[in-house]
């Protein structure tokens, strides 16, 4: 029961319990499609802070709705994508960015594809060289008596 209460407490801590990933207020959509597309692109790169793993655009939480509205106001006011993103980071930190910026802290993260590929290539190269070297010198292991018997049985049948 304690576990339940804890979960309930966590839930109510959130500004607004978002039961389903539903729909937002249409009145906040911009009538200019190019601007709306820009606003959506910005919003889909920002994290909804209340619901943990969704973008601002996908979430129906109250805070996400407010931030969506702010993005649209700023798009209309002619601010650049960078300025709008910086505005959000200033308030909520880089935690709000679903795509972490490339900085010393994230070198390993952004470098992970290259590191993995290099590591894979290195392992393959080493294995190829070893295979060359050893395959020539090593004879196959002798069969155990039991295996010999099985082999003979197989050959006979």
């Amino acid at each position: 029961m304690k576990r339940l209460r804890l979960a309930a407490g966590l839930l109510t801590l959130l500004l607004q319990v978002a039961p389903a990933f539903a729909v937002s207020d249409p009145s906040e959509l911009l009538s200019n499609p190019a601007m709306e597309a820009r606003a959506e692109a910005i919003g889909s790169h920002l994290r909804c802070l209340v619901c943990q793993n969704e973008s601002i655009e996908a979430s129906d939480a109250g805070l996400a709705r407010d931030i969506r509205a702010i993005i649209r106001q700023q798009v209309v006011a002619g601010r650049t994508d960078k300025q709008i993103t910086a505005y959000m980071v200033q308030r909520y930190g880089s935690f709000i960015l679903l795509e972490p910026p490339f900085e010393p802290l994230t070198v390993l993260l952004w470098g992970s594809p290259v590191i993995a590929l290099l590591l894979g290539a290195m392992i393959a190269l080493l294995a190829f060289r070893r295979q060359r070297r050893e395959a020539a010198t090593i004879a196959p292991a002798p069969l155990s008596p039991a295996e010999k018997a099985r082999l003979e049985a197989l050959l006979r049948s």
Binding site: L13, L14, L15, L49, V50, G62, L63, D66, I67, I70, R91, Y92, G93
Partner: peptide, 14 residues
């Protein structure tokens, strides 16, 4: 009432 100042403070819940 609109919750905008809260956003300026970085509030994410009450």
């Amino acid at each position: 009432q609109p919750g905008r100042v809260a956003i300026d403070w970085g509030v994410y819940g009450v």
